[in-house]
Design a protein around this nucleic acid. Structure first.
Lengths: 191, 191, 191, 191
DNA sequence: GATGAATGAGCGTTCATTCAT
DNA sequence: CATGAATGAACGCTCATTCAT
């Protein structure tokens, strides 16, 4: 097994176990076992468990980004881009529930808070399509004149909630319902 | 120190530590120390850590409920009741950030998922003012015709997000902004 | 409840719980609860758990002694007295299995070893009917010429074993089988 | 220190401490210390304390078995085989008193009761030389016509008692006394 | 005397991390 | 490089004993 292979196996194993059982239900030894490597090997690729967790998050972001870009046109209306991005993201999460569960765990942890702090307080990240979209919408006065974190909450809040409920089996999101939910969300956001 | 005092100190210490550091960052020994009691004393009042966590949640619910009821009129319009309930809840959370952080931890844990399962799938709880309100709104066709979990997501999602961001210092919620945010949320919900 | 009553209740509760669950399965608090007294009360009557255990043993000895004496005639033959004593003891144990289980626990513990040390190495206790009997039998050259502890082993060993097996349900001791077993035991002992 | 060394040290330490102080007087931490290993290391070799205790018993059985077989001839008379087996066992115990004390603790524990239940009530274990011998003796009508557990009690009872007394220093078993005691025991058993 | 709430040392067990091989 | 045996601090929890009431 070549070097990047091992790293990939570790990442995969960690994602699966943390998504299923949470950070505390996924000991390093179990991750190593599932990855088919020695326990010490993880520490060649990740300084410690915290770093593994944070790197895992970044890899997920990078993995998801192309799906959002597929068919995305920055020249479209704000509304059209909003619908496009969220439709893509919701479909991705529904197809990859483990990825969603992992992100949820991460965002609800201190790591997630630190990351959000950067996103919301630091320089707005132009590479983040959702941030960019809200910024454009605010600039063009298409969406409400509210502080950026409130706009973010109005988009992310309901949509991540429904994905969670879908994955937990509390409702079933089909394409029709996805569309209606995103519309409702947009109603809250638009001016 | 009299008997209820000890219990209160334990509850306070547990709430603070769990709110600040999460369930796993709040060992029983640390809770005992912060409460100024022996480690074994906690077990006189709570069978084990899980029971402590669940009881703490119930106490918070009971503590918050009166604030929601204060000035609440079940004969008002759906919209008026919606604004009333969420204004009261947001103000409560802003005044008691530890309570909010605790509830957040709880709802993101397996305990929370189990509780949500009951709320969403079981008999709708008429004592839960938020559930009741959404039900009434759906019955009167004032709010959108969407599955109940989606309606819940449209209310809870954005509003709990902004409270979190406020408590983390990412924005500052004053009465004006609270009002505007609730309005925006209502826009997403109303038919 | 008068003073001796409390003591009796503690003794009864301790015997039951220790017989059923062993020394370590019978916490002082559980003994207190079963006895219907406060936990601290036990310490008014017994200095600590070890003393309680030892006192309990002595009370059992005193309780059993009269049953052995009933119908006992020190002028009978060694053999007759042997059969009498063991028949009485086996019947007692079968009727009071908790007493037997307690004695068993005690004798297999360090307390029991210390007590046996006294009995076997110190001045032979003339009040102990079994010791006396073996001594008489040795003096009259009716039983084998072996060191006292060996004679004791030849009597106590098999007979306590069969009682245990009876109580554990591995066999059923009726009067006929009790008689035959004591006879067999005597065969090993007699010259 | 190589892998089997650590396991052996743990086994040795556990045997010593449990033999001397009983199961409850031999905490895992103390076993680890005496073995010269970390506390967690024990759990690499034994799933938990119960498993350690049970494995220790099995290892002792396996260790003793060859001593019994040495010079054993299944074609000999019942009496000859009886004398052979018990002489070998008593000599073994006298040479390895810790092994005896451990077995005693084990057999007087719930584990021991469960094991005895199997031996006495289940299919008679033909690999157990003592069981086999008693069975043969009963079949050939050389020993008394009594239920199997009674026969077992007549053999095991006195002989294990005298070993215990020897180890506790209440008497001194030399080869002569061993022989005489086994003879006496046989007198109880034979028809 | 009697109580039982309070204590805290001690238990069995886990797991992130290290390091000799 | 990779390993996985070893570590030991830390966890949740128990219970013999004390002492203010």
């Amino acid at each position: 097994m070549s070097k990047p292979d091992k790293r990939d196996e570790i990442v995969r194993a960690a994602l699966e176990l943390i998504a299923e059982h949470g950070f505390h239900g996924a000991p390093m030894s179990m991750i190593a076992e599932r990855a088919g490597v020695g326990a010490g090997t993880i520490y060649r690729y990740f300084e410690n468990k915290d770093v593994l967790i944070a790197d895992l998050y970044r890899e997920l972001e990078d993995k998801i980004h192309p799906y959002l870009l597929d068919g995305y046109d920055a020249q479209h209306t704000i509304r059209g881009r909003f619908v496009h991005l969220w439709t893509a993201l919701l479909r991705y999460f529904i197809a990859s529930p483990l990825d969603f569960r992992y992100l949820e765990q991460f965002l609800n942890s201190p790591y997630g808070a630190a990351m959000r702090r950067e996103k919301l307080l630091g320089e707005r990240d132009r590479r983040d399509l959702f941030c960019e979209l809200l910024q454009d919408g605010a600039d063009q006065q298409v969406i409400k004149d509210l502080p950026f974190p409130v706009l973010a909450a109005l988009s992310f809040g309901p949509l991540l909630y429904v994905v969670r409920d879908h994955i937990l089996g509390f409702l079933t999101l089909d394409d029709d319902l996805i569309g209606k939910t995103i519309e409702a969300c947009w109603d809250g956001l638009k001016r």
